[in-house]
Structure formats: structure tokens, C-alpha cells
Design a protein around this nucleic acid. Structure first.
Lengths: 210, 210
DNA sequence: GGTAAACTGGATAGTCAAATCCAGTTTTGG
DNA sequence: CCAAAACTGGATTTGACTATCCAGTTTACC
């Protein structure tokens, strides 16, 4: 009778149920961000979400399913949270604003935690194939958002034809992820700033002469 | 009576003892690379190293101390393993060889595991300050090796004076780390290649005109 | 108003890992 | 040769976590 909790089981859910489910996911996401997946126990999530133990297993088949929900949650969070910046990532001013916003966030966090998706990657990629796939998908969506802005710049003639938006967006995402990882290790945004700046300058190399 | 196992306890160690200690660290490093720190139990390490349980706690105060030894092991491994490439990272040909070697390694590993230091970072940074410091130090040594090559190019007039070796090396390390992380998630070296290529091109921007 | 879902709260089983301890054996280095 | 270190192999304590189950209560919705 346990609702499939995830699959096409199509168990009827009330609004209240969905809200509770979301509260569990949000709490788990926060804890996993702060302490990692292995460092987050279901009792921890239970307390943080303010629910009873049974509710967690009512909505999720097991911890692995909860973790996958967290990945989707973080992906959505990044894409909507950066929507304003990402949707208009189509000028050098916008790129620099985006860079500044990320550096500012990291600074405000005292360089703790790295990237919500990046941290999960190294912990899950090798022993949870479903999680790895979900993470890969999240990175792809994120990278594509950057690519679209660059494509826009190319279409509008801001960038020359020799610019490859897809490749540039991949490189930018690499610099971002690595910058966040190094920020976490070194408690400094120096590498993050250097990486993002270098990529923006690299993109500027393709700009049509003023 | 337990030897401090790490500190300035200055317990006399025989050659055989050091060899065994190293065998434990190497086995732990391999397992932690494959399964993560949390996914590696001391019984796992015991079996992989072919020693008795007591020996692990004979050489290391606890799992945390062993983990720190693993970080030092991996740092040394990277620096000596890439010594040939890193020590002469002072020309564009050398930079490209270095890039190719890294991509090749990742390809041979089927994009599994990411960076030995990077993986440890997101897992340990937030709840093991000593580990975080050791990781930061490892990244600094690695980045400095890159910086030295660039400084060489600058000193020899291959790069123009407006090149900032330190900043460029930081950006390169960010692209490398992010590229490896994305490779792990997406099982593709595309982002790694794009990131490193972009950085090499970025450095080439500072090259004196031919 | 009644059915189904949401929810509490705690008991519980089973597993596994960290770390300590010990009694005895082998190896080594001066 | 002999003392210290290296090492075996396993027993053991302690604790935490995953996951299940249940008996009963509250809330939502047609």
C-alpha cells in the first residue's frame, strides 16, 4: 500500500501533501549542502523538516530517492534563482553582472559549500547512476542557458562568426565549477574570479571590433 | 603507549614499518578515489592493504588522520606524476601536451573519479578543517607549478608584460577542476577540453606577435 | 459526513562501522 | 641475542543509521 512515492503510481496527492513533501526536500537539500549526503541522516532531515519519521518514507521509497529529489530541487533552484541573470546573459555587461553576482553570493557564504550540484557530483557520481544522470542533466540545462545568451550575442552581431557558443558555454561552466570548488578549499574567491574573468575575456576576444 | 602516529611523537620507525604505513595509505587512497571517503570503511582498507585491523590504528590515530595522509599522498602523486609535464610548462607546445595528457588520462578512466583532490574537497571541506587546509595547500602547490611555467614564458619574452602568471594559473586550475567535475557527471571530456583550450587560448592572447 | 490521505510518535529489527583491546608471534636492528 | 617494533586475528564495545511497522489522530475533499 506504500505509494510508489516517485514513479507513475499516480497516487492522489493533496496540496498539503505536496507542500510537506517539498518541505522535506528543501530541508534535505539544505543539510546535504552543508554536510554532504553521507553526513545527512534521515533523523536529521526529520528534525529539520519538522515531520515524523514515517512521512519521509511515505513520500520517498528510500534515501536514494530523496537524494534524487534534492538534485532536481537544486537544479530548479539554480535555474529559477538565476533566471533574471541567465535569461539576459547576452551582453558583456550582463556577463559581468552575472560574474559579480556569483562572486558576491560565494563571498556572503564565506566560501562555504561550493556549488549545490557540484558537491553532490563527486559524492554520488560513482555509486548512484540515477543521481549521476540527473546531475548531468542539471549541468546541461544550466550550460545551455549560458549558451543561449552567447548565441543571442552572435545572432545580433555582437560576437563574430568564429565564436562557438556551445564550446564557450562549456568552458565557462568548467571555470565556474572549478572556481567554486577552489573557493571552498581555499576559502577565497580568487580562483573563481580569475576563472570567470578569464572566460569573459576569452569571449570578448570574439567581439567585433568597436 | 599508542604511538602518536602522526605528530612529533618521534616514535622510531623501521623501514618495514614505513612501507606498511605507505601500503595502507595507498590502498585507502585508491578506495577513497573510487568510492569516496564515506564509502570507504576501515575494514575495506584493511582487506585492500592486506594488513590486520590493528595496524591501521597503530599508524593512524583515527580515520580522520588516515584521510589526511591520503590527501598528502594524492598531492605528492599529482606533483611527481606530472613533474615531467609541469616542470616544463613553459611553452605553448608544452601547455598543449599537458592538456592532451590530462584529457587522455580522463578518457582512459572512462571519465570516472574526477580529480583525486577535487573529489575529496567537496566531501571534507565543510566538516574537517584540517583536511580542508591540506587540500588548499595541495591546490596551491599545483597551481604554483603552473604559475612558474608561465612566469618562465614571461621572463623569456614569450608572453607580454600584461600577462599575470598568478591569475592565469588560478584560472587554469579552475578550468581544470571544473572540467574534471563535469567530465565525471557527464561522462564526457567535452567540457574539460573546452575549458583547458579556452584557457590556453586566453594565455596565447598575451603572446608576443609572431 | 465519511473516506482517503496526511500525520504523529515511537517501537523495532537489522546492519555496519569506528575504535579499543588483547594475547601471542614474527621481524628488525643495534 | 635481545629489546622494541611490527604484526596477526579476532573478540568486543559502542553507537548510529536505514528502513519497516503500527496504532491511533487529524485534516482535507467530494
Amino acid at each position: 500500500m506504500t505509494p510508489a512515492a516517485e514513479g507513475a503510481g499516480a497516487t492522489k496527492r493533496t496540496t498539503r501533501g505536496l507542500v510537506t513533501r517539498e518541505r522535506i526536500v528543501a530541508a534535505a537539500a539544505q543539510l546535504m549542502f552543508e554536510r554532504g549526503v553521507a553526513g545527512t541522516s534521515t533523523p536529521d532531515v526529520r528534525d529539520a523538516a519538522g515531520v515524523s519519521s514515517s512521512q519521509i518514507y511515505h513520500y520517498f521509497a528510500d534515501k536514494s530517492a530523496l537524494t534524487r529529489a534534492v538534485i532536481e530541487f537544486q537544479t530548479a533552484r539554480i535555474l529559477t534563482g538565476q533566471r533574471v541573470l541567465l535569461s539576459r546573459l547576452d551582453s558583456f555587461a550582463a556577463l559581468r553582472d552575472w560574474r559579480d553576482a556569483i562572486v558576491q553570493i560565494e563571498h556572503d557564504l564565506d566560501c562555504r559549500g561550493g556549488c549545490p550540484l557540484g558537491s553532490l557530483t563527486s559524492e554520488l557520481a560513482e555509486h548512484d547512476p540515477a543521481a549521476r544522470t540527473a546531475l548531468a542533466e542539471g549541468f546541461t540545462l544550466w550550460t545551455d542557458a549560458i549558451r543561449d545568451g552567447l548565441q543571442d550575442m552572435l545572432d545580433r552581431g555582437v560576437l563574430r562568426d568564429d565564436a562557438d557558443p556551445h564550446r564557450l558555454s562549456l568552458a565557462t561552466m568548467a571555470a565556474l565549477q572549478g572556481g567554486l570548488l577552489l573557493a571552498q578549499a581555499q576559502r577565497s574567491t580568487a580562483a573563481l574570479e580569475a576563472g570567470l574573468d578569464a572566460m569573459i575575456e576569452r569571449i570578448a576576444f570574439h567581439a567585433v571590433a568597436l
